[in-house]
């Protein structure tokens, strides 16, 4: 994070997307410079995932699972379009994903980054926390930026959300437009990653 914020120091009007809710530390930190902060509170949109009716049983027809998956992907895209409902010309310099990757299954994560993709540019930077293994202690958290090298973390309000621990490579393959530029394994087991656009 220090590196990311340092690189964005000279941006005249910093466009920031925070996937979580706005907390006072983040507002305070960015509040002394010209900026536009978008807080999308994504966890609200993940509370009741879209689902499709189960395939009809004993019809004798072959069920094409890929069609079902595509329908589900479309449903997720629709869901995220309503969350990332920005004007067409909105482009973010910084995306703070925090640990949101870990609350979306592969399909949802893919859909989310597809919907976000029009709102990033070639110098957009990102930050996220990837969960490798199932561990309740690293879920249900909310994050904020206190200083260039200091983040804050508090208990969240989304304890009921399922988490999807995954290897870094699998997560990275689903982040359309982004690549992991650097990662630091934290003692709590989360991998803190800096992202850049591909």
């Amino acid at each position: 994070m220090p590196d990311i914020l340092h690189r964005l120091a000279d941006v005249s009007t910093l466009m920031v997307l925070d996937i979580g809710f706005g907390v006072h530390e983040t507002v305070e930190h960015f509040g002394n410079r010209r900026c536009k902060l978008h807080f999308c509170g994504l966890t609200d949109a993940l509370q009741s995932p879209p689902s499709l009716p189960p395939p009809a049983q004993k019809t004798g027809k072959i069920v094409d699972e890929s069609v079902r998956q595509e329908k589900l992907l479309c449903a997720w895209r629709e869901r995220f379009r309503s969350v990332l409902n920005f004007p067409d010309d909105t482009c973010f310099d910084l995306c703070l994903f925090w640990d949101s990757f870990n609350y979306m299954d592969d399909l949802a994560l893919k859909a989310f980054f597809e919907v976000l993709h029009p709102h990033i540019h070639k110098k957009t930077l990102g930050h996220g926390l990837i969960q490798f293994k199932d561990d309740k202690q690293v879920t249900n958290r909310e994050y904020g930026v206190q200083a260039q090298d200091q983040l804050v973390m508090r208990h969240g309000h989304h304890g009921s959300l399922a988490s999807y621990p995954r290897p870094q490579a699998r997560v990275a393959s689903l982040l359309k437009g982004f690549a992991v530029s650097h990662g630091v394994l934290r003692r709590d087991g989360l991998l803190e990653v800096s992202l850049k656009t591909e």
């Binding site: 809710f21 706005g22 907390v23 006072h24 900026c35 536009k36 902060l37 978008h38 807080f39 509170g41």
Partner: peptide, 14 residues
């Protein structure tokens, strides 16, 4: 200023 404990969803243009 966002009070401690407040959770904000939306856009802030500063």
């Amino acid at each position: 200023t966002l009070e401690e404990g407040a959770r904000f969803k939306g856009t802030i243009d500063i």
